[in-house]
Amino acid sequence: MNVHAIRAIYHFEMARTFRTLMQSIASPVLSTSLYFVVFGAAIGQRMGAVDGVSYGAFIVPGLIMLSLLTESVSNASLGIYLPKWSGTIFELLSAPVSYVEVLLGYVGAAATKSVMLGTLILVTARFFVPYHVVHPLWMVAFLLLTAVSFSMLGFIIGLWSESFEQLGIVPLMVLTPLTFLGGAFYSIAMLPGAWRQIALFNPVVYLISGFRWSFYGVADVNVLLSTAATLAFFLLCVAVVAWIFRSGYKLKS
């Protein structure tokens, strides 16, 4: 294991994060705060409680997940796309590293940033809505697992992308709808019959449900199923990355 390489990549990526601190941290925090003001404080006052939780508190886990997913994907995808775009990837390809070290460096840095961001939003939310966390360890576990898994997905998207347009399209066209329809703002139980079944095909439902369970002890789907689904997704991403590096797909000619 080339530990020096992992450290080098991780530091390189974290330095990039801190160079662009404003857009990478401030803007997601600001936009999520706006959600809290509008949905939590303003509209939430007139909404009934969902599953015995006030609406403002109910949307906190979903909103954190929303930022966590989009930020993980965009951080990690940009992290690996930039060297491809500028040509500096030659150095990574010629270095004595395997995909494991590359992943640990890039995905580790992207996930670190997402977790920092998630924590920051969690703290910010406290200013707008009162919430509590019933299972804090589970909450941290879901936060970490989601940050890592979706950073991994972002890494794959970055490897696959051949232009900045492609880089932006997956988060915009796939991730945002999946999150909005994944129960960030409502419980799946609130959907009419057939839609409830369809919703269960949305992987984000399992994430948000599990995460919300760690806050309030209520869930749309069994928490173990949530955990299993997230882990399965994580492993799938690892397999895809391993294959890309072995075959050189989109990396080597």
């Binding site: 020096h4 390189f12 060297p83």
Partner: peptide, 20 residues
């Protein structure tokens, strides 16, 4: 092929680490 925003020093120490 170079990183535009990195400093000379950090890019050189990065390479050393990357190569183990």
């Amino acid at each position: 092929h170079t990183d535009a925003f990195e400093s000379v020093w950090s890019t050189v120490t990065f390479s050393r680490g990357l190569f183990g």
